[in-house]
Design a protein around this nucleic acid. Sequence first.
DNA 1: GGTTGTCGCAACAGTAATTGTTACGACGGG
DNA 2: CCCGTCGTAACAATTACTGTTGCGACAACC
Lengths: 144, 144
Amino acid sequence: MSANSRLTIAAHALAWIGLYQRQGHEVATSEQIAASANTNPVVIRRLLGELRRAGLVESRRGVGAGWSLARELESMTLLDVYEAVEPGPLFAMHRTTPDQGCVVGHGIQPAMQAIYEGIENTLRHELSLVTLENVLQDVLATPH
Amino acid sequence: MSANSRLTIAAHALAWIGLYQRQGHEVATSEQIAASANTNPVVIRRLLGELRRAGLVESRRGVGAGWSLARELESMTLLDVYEAVEPGPLFAMHRTTPDQGCVVGHGIQPAMQAIYEGIENTLRHELSLVTLENVLQDVLATPH
DNA sequence: GGTTGTCGCAACAGTAATTGTTACGACGGG
DNA sequence: CCCGTCGTAACAATTACTGTTGCGACAACC
């Protein structure tokens, strides 16, 4: 599976902004978050842009600009983040249409679609059980 | 997510071999399976080679060669196939190590690892509930 | 009104995985 | 010996993600 880190980085950014705001700051910059995640600020801005479209964060422009949470961490789940940053389904069908004249080629896609749908629903439910507040608390509980 | 079709194609191949054997044939060739899946025989041979390493199929060489099931479809689950053809984890960590001097950068990977581990276990359990016999029956039940 | 710091976004290169294709040796039954 | 099929290497094509540069837009501050 194409292991991608989008969900991980997005959760990192949200936890970072949340903690920073609790320390009394108004907004966090993409450069600060990028330094913590050890990546490029544009990568962070791209991801946070998707989270903004999903209503999870807000951004200000101009001097002293940056990012802030649009909701409390308690009300955001990993499912919200997953849906914001992961476009496609978990498993794909054939890239080309199977032979419809063959019994298996004809029936395999509906059969697998139904199975995958059930699995994805379970995955989404699992993700919906974890809030970003849970993530931040786990982060803070890590021994140093 | 890099949507890949390896699990789908592998399930297709297994269902095809299983049905073909029930029709009285000894072995199926990669060319026949590739025609049903509308892909290249080498793609099928590569995937079936991984399934053979996992003990799900066997192959014969020489004239009249081909592939046959090593076990009954009832005893194979999608988890067996998934583990045989999907190498990596579902979600990846950062590509570069986060800033260990930052509280979030230090704690985020253990936190997310634990969460992902739970989710992957659930996914594996779901996959283990579906046998290849279930898949074949679903395929045969598709209206034409 | 100019300066400055930050976002917004386009464009492109680098990396990696998957898929498709060709080629050819290995094998084994006839 | 011949022939069909697997086994496998090699390479191109496609796609997705990541990293990077560049520059315009915006808004606070002087």
